[in-house]
Structure formats: structure tokens, C-alpha cells
Design a protein around this nucleic acid. Sequence first.
DNA 1: ATGCCTTCCGCGGGAAGA
Length: 264
Amino acid sequence: MKIVTWNINGVRARIGNLTHWLTESAPDIVCLQEIKTVDEQFPRAEIEALGYNVEIHGQKGFNGVALLSKLRFDEVIKGLPGDEADEQARFIEGVFSTDKGALRVASLYLPNGNPIDDEKKFPYKLSWMARLERWAQERLRLEEALVLAGDYNVIPEPVDARFPENWLGDALFQPQTRQAFRRLLNLGFTEAVRAVTDASDTYTFWDYQAGAWQKNNGIRIDHLLLSPEAANRFSSASIEKHVRAWEKPSDHVPVAIDLALLPA
DNA sequence: ATGCCTTCCGCGGGAAGA
């Protein structure tokens, strides 16, 4: 079963790219981030026509996440618990039936957090990460195959940036950010890409500006975290980098994994 | 580092992104 995360940077602006990519890549489950639309304006019909079920947690103008799945949804939960006042649409989870039992997949869009001296933005990022850790701790107790995928806005290690020195003052590479990410991992997750390669040049994002793509000035910030039950079924991961060279690309590319699971 | 692009909203630049 192929599961992919992709920050699409506007699903309405990118619907042609998305349908082309779905046909080419043939994922079973897709975690989308930054759909930048309310549910009612999501281009549902074009995606359903390709055989996908669609669940959306949208928001006007920015943020917004979605799950696309060839499997039927047994359950859908929208929003990350822990702060009733948080109105930003950054989290959706779906549960599916497989030949090996339940599979839970979450699509997350972790706050950017810049600038770090803003009185709200970086604290919001860190508190969101703390909420995510609590959520993960609870979900891991279920002992399900769990894939926690999305745009984490975290550069985990220096090797995950072409020019790490450029990111020292950035929320994506702060010691507190990296520590919170390690705390999450240390609950018992396997980070899929780093489980199969320690290579540099495994980036998932290239800025639109200053010819970042042409210069390969990239960072790795889109991650898939696997519970032990998912990691035991995990065989491969790949970054679908060629999509960044398409016309009107997102600044992120799809990151895919394969799990030895079949629809029930 | 900033904002060299790009999206969104909505009609004119402003917010947001990373």
C-alpha cells in the first residue's frame, strides 16, 4: 500500500498537477496540506472521478488539510486536540481496514513559527508540537499501524538542508523545534526516509525565490512517522522530486512510502 | 536574512509562507 504526503500549496491552483500526479503515481492514500480552501470549494469531483474517497478539513484562504483514499474511511477525525481556541485547520486523521487490522493515517500541517521573535508565532509552533506529542502518545497505546505524515516545518538535522547555516535563525531549525521533533520520534516512531537512507540531498522543499530549485537549495521538512506496527510493514520510501520541475509546481514535492498492507 | 515568488482574498495591495 502506497501512502504519500504532499504540501500542494493551493489545491485549486494545482488541480491539474494533482490529477496528473494521482494518475502517474497511483497512491492508495494521500495526505495533502495547504489546500488553502474551504471544504465547499475543494475540487472533489475531479479527484473522486479517479476513484478516491475525499475527506477535507479546510479553511478560508490558508492552511487546510485533506485525505484522499482508495480505501473507504471507517472513521474521520478533524482537528488536533488540546486547545479549543485554536481555529487553524492543520490536522485530519482517517482510519481504514486492512488485511492486518486497522490502519490510521494523519495529515498534518505543523505551524511555520516565523519570525522567532514574534510574540505569538513561535510559541504557537511549540505548543502545537506539544499537543501533537500528547496526541501521539495516546494513539500509540492503540498499537495500530499509524502513519503520521505531513509538512512538519522541521529541519531535523544539518544534513537536511543544503545550507544549514542559512537556517540558524529560522523557526524550522531552532534547537527547541528540533528537540520537540526528537521527543516525538522517541515515543517510538520510525522516520521513514531516514530509515532507508542517510544521504544528503534528500530534500522535499525548494523555495520559489532566488532560483532555489535550479541551485538545489533545498530542505527536508516533509516527513512520515511510523508506529512500530507500521514500521514492521515498511519496505521503501521515495521523494518524487521530478514533480518540482513541472509547470506551476508546488514548492514541496510528494514523499511516498510503501507498507505491506492490503485493503480489507 | 529577507521577501528575489506564489497563493489567497477580492479588486488593491496585504497576509502568509519557510
